[in-house]
């Protein structure tokens, strides 16, 4: 089957319509703003207060950026669950039989998570620091929003790989996303600089898009736009690699299902 951009766009668009419908079944504007967003902002404040506890304002500012970026990971990793909804709602036989590129379908199917994550992360990055006496300069605000969106997109590519794995083992869909989120929070340089950890953990962190997203946002804090561009480029490259891995993973899952070995009932 040759690649057709039009067909690809149609696949993503169709799946995104399902995502849109799903999202507004889960949330209303009110519950998204006053429940979900508040919960995520409290998560940022929870970690930021540790900076207050240890009595170091500079470190508090460091934590706020890290915790705000973790909002992006927390939300995007929910892709693992929504990918499995296809199987749980009995649509896998139809997907397996359809001529679409599976990764495009699943990309569109959970796209509401990175879109929502881009908004919640931007709000967290922009709204929390002023309460701790460290607001952003106005000219940096558009960059913050773009970096939040790029981090959400690239982390989504990693989340799709987790989703592809969870598709074969649906019972671990929640635990897989939880572990990924907790691991990233601990070891991506969000809460303490990467230098704190042994070399092996530092190397693994390079494979997480958000590690480079964090570098980009911190470089923006320092006003170093060159470093922002470099870190963003790395983040996009890592995201692209994960997208390729997700493509292969979804193809493999569906190929196994066609041979009757995936149990995609």
């Amino acid at each position: 089957m040759t690649f057709s951009p039009v067909r690809a766009a149609r696949t993503v668009r169709g799946a995104a319509m399902v995502a849109h419908a799903d999202f507004w079944t889960i949330y209303t504007w009110r519950s998204w703003s006053f429940a979900w967003l508040v919960r995520l902002l409290c998560q940022v404040v929870f970690f930021a207060l540790v900076g207050v506890l240890v009595g170091d304002p500079e470190y508090t500012a460091f934590i706020i950026v890290g915790a705000a970026m973790m909002v992006c990971v927390t939300e995007t990793m929910l892709t693992s669950s929504s990918t499995c909804w296809e199987r749980m709602q009995g649509r896998m036989p139809l997907i397996t039989a359809s001529p679409v590129e599976p990764v495009l379908l699943f990309f569109g199917r959970s796209v509401f998570w990175p879109v929502s994550a881009a908004v919640t992360t931007s709000v967290a990055l922009l709204a929390v620091p002023p309460f701790f006496g460290d607001p952003w300069a106005l000219w940096k605000v558009p960059f913050v929003i773009v970096l939040a969106a790029l981090t959400a997109l690239t982390t989504y590519c990693l989340a799709l790989v987790v989703g592809a794995l969870a598709l074969s083992f649906t019972e671990v869909r929640n635990i897989a996303s939880t572990v990924m989120t907790l691991y990233t929070t601990a070891f991506s340089g969000a809460m303490v600089p990467l230098d704190f950890w042994p070399p092996v953990l530092r190397w693994i962190a390079q494979a997480l898009p958000v590690t480079h997203g964090l570098d980009a946002v911190r470089a923006l804090q320092d006003g170093d736009l060159g470093a922002v561009a470099a870190a963003s480029g790395l983040m996009l490259a890592v995201g692209a690699v994960w997208f390729v891995v997700a493509t292969l993973a979804f193809r493999r899952v569906l190929a196994r299902a066609r041979r009757g070995r995936g149990g995609l009932d």
Partner: peptide, 22 residues
């Protein structure tokens, strides 16, 4: 499954207080 968060949170919070010399 609900137990998995305990060790991760411990490591994260402990790394924060250790890093800041507390």
């Amino acid at each position: 499954f609900s137990l998995v968060s305990a060790p991760f949170f411990t490591i994260t919070l402990l790394s924060m207080v250790t890093y800041s010399g507390r």
